[in-house]
Each structure stands twice: as structure tokens, then as C-alpha cells.
């Protein structure tokens, strides 16, 4: 109880540190930064690093954009684990009570919002999803990819959520599938690959292109769903009380 009271006090009346402490702290951090800078200057830069290696192996990766090749082929376990991390955060934030409704997206027409907003959403949301699809597809040969596409699609959901009419129900099967799809498909591809070729995340050259695309589509859906879940749940808890947020 004392801890929580202290927390609230810290948040409401921001108490400043004393001037001496601030200066001392600033001096320590400046010294640390200077030491880091010297360390950076002294260390020889690896030229050209892994750029040559990535460029040489680009034609066996299945895509033409080196960043996508690194993310989803050369170091795909990084991406796999990252999607797992995102899923863990999502699980921590998910509502705890189950619900009987099966509809993921519900619209409440009784809430009156500005007609300008309705018109804007009508154009903005499909456009954002289209841009997301474009970014996903173009990720194979120019800048773009699953993360960027997922973020843009989540942005469409954020716009819907902020407008106030739409509500997302995360207990529904659809939502759960969307949240888990990225990790599941990634693991399935890795397992199938392990059975066929003997190595889990090293795709065979002739199939690499479409395997990466399948993984990327699933990852985009999951990343969009998880980012949207983070926003919608934070909005809900910021607006309502303890009992309501678990529904």
C-alpha cells in the first residue's frame, strides 16, 4: 500500500531532485558518454561488415531486398523469437474473462460521431489496408516488409478505435487466431522444412520465395493484431474501471 501511494504521489506532484544531485549526475553521465565516444573512435569499424556476405548470398535467399533476406531467411530465428516476444506481451494484456459473442469487430450505430469523421474513415481505413498490402508485397525487392505493413494496418484499427463507434472483442476465436497465426505459421514452416530438408530455418532455394511470402503474410496479420490489441486495451483501461476491463 505504501508503495502504491508513493507511486501516485510521484505521478501527481513531480518532485524534483536537488540541484547538487542533478549536477553530479550530469557530470557522471557526461564522463560516461565521453568514455563511450572514445571507445567508439578507438574501435576499428568492420568494413564492409556482413554486407558482402549478404550480397553474395542474396540470389539463394528468394527475395531481392537484403534487409528482408536477413530478417526472414539468414537470421529468421531472430524474427521468430521477436514474434514470440510480441505474443507474450499480448497474452499479458489480454482480457481474462471469456465472452459469448463471436463477432470480432462490433459497431455501435447509436453513438453519434461527426459525419466528416465517418466519411474520412470510409476512405482512410481501406486505403491504410491497401498500403499495408503494398508494403508487404514490395518488401521482397524494395524497402518494406512485414513489420511496416503490420504497423500501417494496425494504424487503420487505431483510427477506427479512436473514432469511438467500433469495439474489438479479443475473446473471440477470430482474434485469438489472428494473434497466434504468425508464430504458428512460422513454426509450421520451420517444422516442415526440418522434416523435408533436415535443417529447420534454412529454406531450399527453389521454394524460398513463396515460403518467405507465406511467413510474411501470417506475421503481418499477427503484428497488426498485437499492436492493435496493445492500443485498444490501453485505451480501455485508461477510460474505465477495474471490473470493466476484464470483459
Amino acid at each position: 500500500m505504501f508503495i502504491s501511494l508513493e507511486f501516485q504521489q510521484q505521478n501527481t506532484n513531480e518532485k524534483e531532485l536537488s540541484r547538487v544531485t542533478c549536477w553530479l549526475l550530469g557530470a557522471i553521465i557526461t564522463a560516461l558518454s565521453i568514455a563511450l565516444t572514445i571507445a567508439l573512435l578507438v574501435t576499428d569499424k568492420a568494413v564492409p561488415g556482413l554486407a558482402d556476405l549478404a550480397a553474395k548470398n542474396l540470389d539463394i535467399s528468394g527475395v531481392e531486398n537484403p534487409v528482408t533476406a536477413v530478417l526472414l531467411n539468414f537470421r529468421s530465428y531472430d524474427t521468430l523469437l521477436e514474434i514470440a516476444v510480441l505474443l507474450i506481451v499480448a497474452v499479458a494484456i489480454l482480457p481474462t474473462q471469456s465472452s459469448t459473442t463471436t463477432q470480432f469487430l462490433s459497431v455501435d450505430d447509436k453513438i453519434i460521431i461527426s459525419p466528416v469523421l465517418v466519411g474520412l474513415l470510409k476512405w482512410l481505413v481501406p486505403l491504410a489496408i491497401l498500403v499495408g498490402g503494398y508494403l508487404l508485397w514490395t518488401g521482397a525487392y524494395s524497402p518494406g516488409g512485414a513489420f511496416q505493413a503490420g504497423a500501417v494496418v494496425a494504424g487503420a484499427g487505431v483510427a477506427l478505435s479512436l473514432a469511438g463507434r467500433h469495439d474489438f472483442l479479443w475473446q473471440t476465436t477470430k482474434a485469438r487466431v489472428a494473434l497466434n497465426l504468425g508464430l504458428l505459421v512460422f513454426l509450421l514452416v520451420a517444422a516442415a522444412n526440418a522434416i523435408v530438408t533436415g535443417t529447420s530455418l534454412q529454406y531450399p532455394v527453389e521454394h524460398a520465395g513463396w515460403l518467405i511470402l507465406v511467413v510474411e503474410i501470417a506475421a503481418t496479420l499477427s503484428i497488426a493484431a498485437i499492436l492493435l490489441l496493445l492500443f485498444v486495451r490501453l485505451k480501455k483501461i485508461a477510460e474505465r474501471s477495474e471490473q470493466e476491463i476484464n470483459q
Partner: peptide, 30 residues
């Protein structure tokens, strides 16, 4: 070099997830 680029991309997404988790905990305490 594309490898640091891929690392930073993952980093950005994990950073936003971490920020959201921290905000969630702060709101629960509140």
C-alpha cells in the same frame, strides 16, 4: 550492411511492445 538494419527493425517493434507493457502496468497500479 543489412544485418544491423534488421536488428534495428526488430528493436523498434520490441521497444513499442515494451512501452505498452510498462504503460499497462502503470495504469493497473493507478
Amino acid at each position: 550492411d543489412p544485418v544491423p538494419h534488421a536488428m534495428v527493425l526488430t528493436g523498434i517493434v520490441v521497444a513499442v511492445a515494451g512501452t505498452a507493457q510498462c504503460l499497462w502496468l502503470a495504469l493497473r497500479i493507478q
